[in-house]
């Protein structure tokens, strides 16, 4: 087994294991920590895929930003006081069944999928490549995403601020 495969399986285990734990833990704090493990694993996969920029972005944005947000809210609303309550809602078998059916169908379709022939990456650094693509071909979404973030900021401030 070569080194890359080893890393792949290691990161996959982290990603999927963390994800499974995240959705099954009773405590929200534990779930958040499992989620962090999972996201780290995904970051590792990005590294294996030569996406260094995303690897950094994943760690800084997700683990630094989003998870912190989650933990902050969990502390604020003291979720763990509700630990004794039911963790799954009543119709969970229905949700699980939908997931399983979709999973089987998707797996079958994927197993028969044929991708177009592979191409090689241009021989420039990943960050330069991403930057070029982003600013040349994807200028519009780059501009629109500023609106998105503005809405998110205004919205979350509006909703979370104390009553006037």
């Amino acid at each position: 087994m070569n080194l890359e495969a080893l890393f792949f399986y290691a990161f996959t285990t982290l990603a999927l294991g963390g994800a499974t734990l995240a959705i099954t833990r009773r405590s929200a704090v534990h779930a958040a920590i499992s989620l962090m493990v999972s996201l780290l694993g995904v970051a590792g996969l990005y590294l294996l895929l030569n996406a260094e920029f995303l690897f950094v972005a994943q760690i800084i944005l997700y683990i630094g930003g989003i998870l912190l947000l989650f933990l902050f809210v969990i502390m604020l609303v003291n979720l763990d006081a509700g630990r004794g309550l039911r963790q799954f809602h009543q119709r969970w078998p229905l949700g699980a069944a939908v997931t399983v059916i979709a999973g089987v169908a998707f797996a079958i379709l994927w197993s028969r999928a044929v991708l177009p022939p592979a191409q090689t990456m241009p021989d420039v650094g990943n960050v330069e490549l991403v930057a070029d693509t982003l600013l040349q071909d994807y200028l519009v979404p780059f501009e629109v995403v500023s609106l998105l973030l503005l809405v998110a900021v205004v919205g979350s401030v509006l909703l979370a601020r104390k009553r006037a």
Partner: peptide
């Protein structure tokens, strides 16, 4: 009915 197209459509 290419599998990938079907997946995308779904």
């Amino acid at each position: 009915f290419d599998p990938l197209t079907v997946l995308a459509i779904l």
